[in-house]
């Protein structure tokens, strides 16, 4: 189903439908995460991928155009070949990965047993994802929060009201000087 949605996204020219389908795509991958027991990730994917980014894409469409421009030059086979080769390399790479739920997978033997042993008596919060994310990996989460902050500031500087307000102030200053 993910593949069908992705193909539909590539083929359809109406950007409104494309945005809706990308929301569907996010929701489907959230379901995939749920079936793999990664509930926290699924939650984020559903909220951010299917929710917010759809709204932001719609906002972008409202500012730009509703239909994809049909490209004038004939499509060449090179992009398809590049994508196919990259895809095959990626699939080949996954062959080396441990099976889902394999107890001997590198992720399960490195630091996780240590965390599982320490969390009940060091922190005592049942949601281990929260424990690791907020306490043992506090630096990383601080960095992530800073990234979100920077993203917000960046959008504000690029298209938000901040610059406009300053320009208006400058214009007002000029006006008062002229007067």
């Amino acid at each position: 189903m993910l593949v069908t949605t992705a193909l539909a996204i590539v083929r359809i020219r109406s950007l409104f439908a494309v945005v809706m389908l990308s929301g569907v795509f996010s929701l489907l991958s959230a379901l995939l995460f749920v079936t793999m027991d990664a509930v926290d990730v699924a939650f984020t994917e559903a909220a951010v991928g299917a929710g917010i980014s759809t709204v932001l894409m719609l906002g972008t469409i409202a500012l730009t155009s509703r239909f994809e421009r049909i490209s004038s030059h004939a499509s060449s086979p090179i992009p398809l070949v590049v994508v196919l080769i990259t895809g095959m390399v990626l699939v080949y790479g996954t062959l080396d990965m441990p099976n889902f739920g394999d107890p001997n997978a590198p992720a399960h033997v490195h630091v996780l047993p240590d965390y599982l042993e320490r969390i009940p008596h060091e922190i005592g919060i049942p949601n281990m994802v929260t424990d690791i994310l907020a306490s043992y990996r506090g630096y990383d989460t601080l960095g992530e929060t800073a990234v979100v902050f920077t993203a917000g500031i960046g959008v504000l500087l690029l298209i938000g009201g901040l610059g406009r307000r300053r320009r208006k102030l400058v214009a007002d200053d000029k006006k008062s000087e002229d007067a």
Binding site: V55, L56, G59, L63, V155, L156, L158, G160, G161
Partner: peptide
């Protein structure tokens, strides 16, 4: 903030 920036 991002939504306001887009919507404004």
């Amino acid at each position: 903030a991002i939504y306001y920036a887009f919507g404004s």
